[in-house]
Amino acid sequence: MKPFEFFKPATIGDASKILADYGREGRALAGGTDLLIRMKRGQWTPRAVVSLNRIAALRAMEMNGELQLGARVTLGEIIRSAEARGQFPVLARTASKMAGVQVRSLATVGGNLCNASPSADMAPPLIALGARADIAGRDHERILPLEDFFVGPGQNALVPGEILRAIFIPRPADGFFCSYVKLEHREAMDIAIAGVAVSAQLAKSAAEIRNCLDVRIVLGAVAPVPRRAKRAEEILRGNDLTRERIQEAARLAASEAQPIDDVRGSAWYRRQMIEVLTRRQLLALMTAPL
C-alpha cells in the first residue's frame, strides 16, 4: 500500500470536513472489506483514509415510523437485529447470503452501497423496499431515492465530503411482500451472477386472486448499476396476478437487463436467469398469505 494519513474523527461533521479537504484523494473507511482489498492491489492510492468507526451516530438502527438504518451497521448486526428479522426479513436473509460470518462482522450496509458494485447484494432488495439514502455533507444534507444513488460501476452519487449517513426504509403495510434471490456458483463466499428483488403491495380482488396495487422489480449484476425493470412493473401494476401476465413480465424483465459476459457467466445465461428468478418470485406472490 502507498503511504496515507489516517484519521478517526468522532463526528460526521469532522469526517466530512477532512474528506472535503482531500477531495478525490480521500477515502472513507467503514468495514474495509472492499477498500482494503483495492488498496492492497494498488487500485486505489488515497492520501487520506478516514475511518468512520468512531462515529456512534452511524451505527444506530431505529424504528421511527420508518427504519433508519445507520450506514455503519454491519451485515452481522442486520442478521441479528429483531427489527430486521421481524419487519424486513428480506434484509436479514440477503445479508446472510453475503460472504461468510467473518467478513459479515466487518462489512457494512453503507459500504456495500457506496462501493456501488453492479453485484452489490444489498442494493436490489433495498431499492425494492423503496429505501432512500440519507446523505450528509460539510454544511448540507440531502436525501436521494436509493435507485438514484448508483451512477456507474463503482460510482455513487456522493461528491467529495459527502457521507452516506443512513438508509431510510418505509415500514411495510399489510399485504406487502419483498424477496431477493441471488444466483451464485456456490452457497457461501460468492458474488452474484444475477440477482432479482421483487416487492409488491397486494390486495385480494377475489377469493383466490391477488391484485398487484404496486410492484417493484430490481435487477442486480446485469447492468452497470442495479436497475428497475420498469416495463415489467408496468404491466403488473394495478392488475390481477395471472400466470400469463407473470410470464410476460418475466420476459420483459429479461429484455430490460443489460448483462455482460464475464468469468461468472455469459450475458445470454444471465438474461435467461433474470427471467427465471423474476418469474419464480412473482409466481410465489400468487399464493402469498393475505
Binding site: F6, K8, L29, G31, G32, T33, L36, I37, K40, V49, S51, N53, G76, A99, G100, V101, Q102, V103, S105, L106, M189
Partner: peptide
C-alpha cells in the same frame, strides 16, 4: 490476504473477523 480463506480469523469485540482486512490503527 483478501478475506476469502479465514486463516487470519480473530475475535474483534467478540465477533470472528478476518484480521487481514482490518487496519491495526482502526483497532484502537
Amino acid at each position: 490476504d483478501s478475506g476469502d480463506c479465514g486463516a487470519c480469523t480473530v475475535l474483534l469485540d467478540g465477533e470472528p473477523a478476518p484480521s487481514c482486512l482490518v487496519l491495526a490503527a482502526d483497532c484502537d
